[in-house]
């Protein structure tokens, strides 16, 4: 499917409160094109709860349940149960949460909902920090990155929630990013047409948080995939496969050097040679593992 064939429906109204160049609204626009208006969004505390704009107005043209930070997946379980009771099975409950609300604060609710086999889609948009509260480190922040709570650079590598979710053996797990809209659209549509718990993680480069120019949001996402810092894959009923550009890398195309991606971001400005070595060896290790499996 080409970009021009994607549906023209818009569920985000013009004049919402997102920063200029925001990746979340790009991701949400594409995701909602696939999900359609028969969707109920459950949004915990994250940028998206602010982007909606102020009471009594909303910039999103779908029903939303705004809920506490740790409770997104639990809230969606309730929505899912209510829809089943009311026999409204054509409506999809979808969690739209940031990485803070998924990797750290919301992980117990997420794990619980996945284990119970709740019929819902969980979409985590990963901007690798708590951007809503002013750029603090999260479990998704990569090694070396500056945030206001790791101002000499983070000392730990990020964890991989996709792997944790895969260990729950649910019907559908996928990763995507905004620079490959056809891939993202296809994955959300695939998830929508399945039953049971489904998980999609969307990589979302944040201009103010990562310290890069707002016009380069899409380029940052593309470079992350081309350098191998972000990986596109999907797993349907246990069948794991790389997709899009990541598949080409796995089949032998060269990964671009990670420096190309790092040097465009102010949050990595202070990195030393030692740091670069650590980042490179971590990345190589990860890719070697993928190539073996």
């Amino acid at each position: 499917m080409a970009i021009k064939d994607l549906p023209r429906d818009e569920y985000l109204l013009k004049g919402h409160a997102a920063c200029p160049g925001c990746p979340i609204t790009v991701a949400l626009r594409i995701a909602l094109k696939a999900l359609g208006n028969k969707t109920i969004l459950v949004i915990p505390a994250c940028c998206s709860s602010v982007i909606q704009a102020l009471y009594p107005k909303s910039g999103f043209n779908v029903p939303i349940l705004n809920i506490a930070f740790e409770a997104a997946a639990a809230g969606a379980s309730g929505v899912s149960a209510a829809l089943k009771k009311l026999d409204k099975t054509d409506i999809t409950p979808v969690v739209w949460a940031g990485d803070g609300g998924s990797y750290d604060i919301g992980i117990q609710a997420l794990s619980g909902a996945l284990e119970r086999g709740t019929n819902f889609i969980y979409i985590c948009y990963n901007n690798q920090m708590y951007s809503n509260t002013g750029i603090q480190r999260s479990g998704a922040t990569p090694y070396g990155a500056w945030t206001t709570t790791t101002w000499t650079g983070k000392k730990e590598h990020q964890k991989e929630l996709g792997e944790i979710v895969r260990a729950h053996h649910i019907p559908y797990v996928a990763t995507a990013t905004i620079s490959y809209p056809e891939d993202l659209y296809a994955k959300v549509l695939k998830a929508k047409n399945m039953k049971g718990p489904r998980y999609i993680e969307i990589f979302a480069p944040c201009p103010p948080g990562w310290r890069f120019d707002m016009s380069k949001t899409i380029e940052m996402a593309r470079l992350a995939v081309e350098t191998g810092a972000w990986i596109l894959y999907e797993e349907i009923d246990g069948q794991f496969a790389f997709t899009s550009y990541s598949k080409k890398i796995l089949e032998g195309r060269d990964r671009k050097p990670i420096e190309e991606w790092l040097q465009l971001q102010g949050r990595f400005r202070h990195l030393t040679e030692d740091d670069m070595k650590k980042i490179n060896s971590h990345l190589d290790e990860k890719w070697n593992q993928y190539k073996k499996s």
Binding site: G15, Q52, A53, L54, Y55, K57, S58
Partner: peptide, 12 residues
Amino acid sequence: ISLPTLGAMGKT
């Protein structure tokens, strides 16, 4: 309840 509104944050 907030209702969907065009230009919820004004003319951006």
